[in-house]
């Protein structure tokens, strides 16, 4: 059994670092074409996510196969984990200028309607993100069935994540922010106190969301190779650790 690290993408709030581009974004032309949610996901994901996923899709199975074939007994070769600043990769203008393939997948400029709202005010140091990243790796190690773990803001922006499958990180972050808020709201309406987890039990896996602190949440996505008790306790501990790191 071989465990491979998925690539890791992290971003910082890029308000301060990228002021010029952000003013430019605001003035992008807006068409009045309706927004297609399917496309939406592609644009809003920082480019690094796409490439990270594409990369892991393209190389991982091959790497596993060849290693298995050629050196069946060698130790696990871990991919270097890349921490990227969103500021350097997520700017759509920059992406358009340098990456034609991405540009083609880029939907209408309507998408930029919202960019003025998109500059995260949460700002963490490289050190904080690096330590958080280790916690996410640890989570994946301890829960063999897990194939995604995401730190995102409670209003639906992904901050740091580790995925082993091609899952739409931005969509998952946003939808789980809604779900957690609904869960907390249902708990309140049912006169129950603290909502600790929102658990989605599916036929072949689970999605567990929980709060890290006032502004951050953790989403854990796992197959049934890890049992629920394990997923909840490791999730809880990871969120607790992250709370200390990202305070």
């Amino acid at each position: 059994m071989k465990i491979k690290k998925g690539k890791l993408a992290a971003f910082f709030g890029f308000k301060s670092q990228n002021q010029e581009e952000s003013t430019e974004q605001k003035s992008l032309p807006v068409t009045d074409k309706p927004i297609d949610f399917g496309e939406d996901i592609h644009t809003e994901q920082p480019a690094v996510i796409d490439s990270a996923i594409a990369d892991s899709k393209a190389t991982e199975p091959v790497a596993i196969n060849s290693e298995n074939l050629l050196e069946p007994s060698t130790e696990i070769e871990e991919k270097t984990v890349e921490v990227e600043e969103k500021a350097t990769v997520a700017d759509p203008l920059e992406v358009e200028a340098t990456n034609t393939e991405f540009k083609m997948a880029t939907p209408e400029p309507t998408m930029d309607y919202e960019h003025e709202e998109e500059h995260l005010i949460v700002n963490y140091s490289k050190e904080q993100l690096a330590v958080s990243e280790e916690k996410l790796e640890e989570f994946m190690r301890v829960c063999p069935g897990a194939y995604g773990v995401l730190i995102s803001t409670v209003d639906g922006h992904e901050l740091l994540y580790l995925v082993k499958r091609d899952i739409p990180v931005h969509k998952i972050s946003t939808m789980n922010s809604s779900l957690l808020a609904l869960g907390e709201s249902i708990a309140r309406e049912s006169s129950q106190k603290l909502c600790q987890f929102v658990i989605l039990e599916n036929s072949d896996g689970r999605v567990v969301s929980l709060r890290i602190n006032d502004i951050l949440m953790l989403t854990c996505i796992s197959s049934k190779d890890t049992n629920l008790g394990m997923l909840l306790s490791v999730g809880r501990n990871t969120a607790g650790d992250l709370m200390k790191i990202l305070s």
Binding site: E117, H119, T153, V154, D155, S177, S185, D214, I215
Partner: peptide, 23 residues
Amino acid sequence: PVSTDVFSTDSLSKLKDTTTVAM
């Protein structure tokens, strides 16, 4: 009303502290 407002963490926070994320 049932509210699902949480802290806003993007530039909307200049305008207001919370935002509705579900309904």
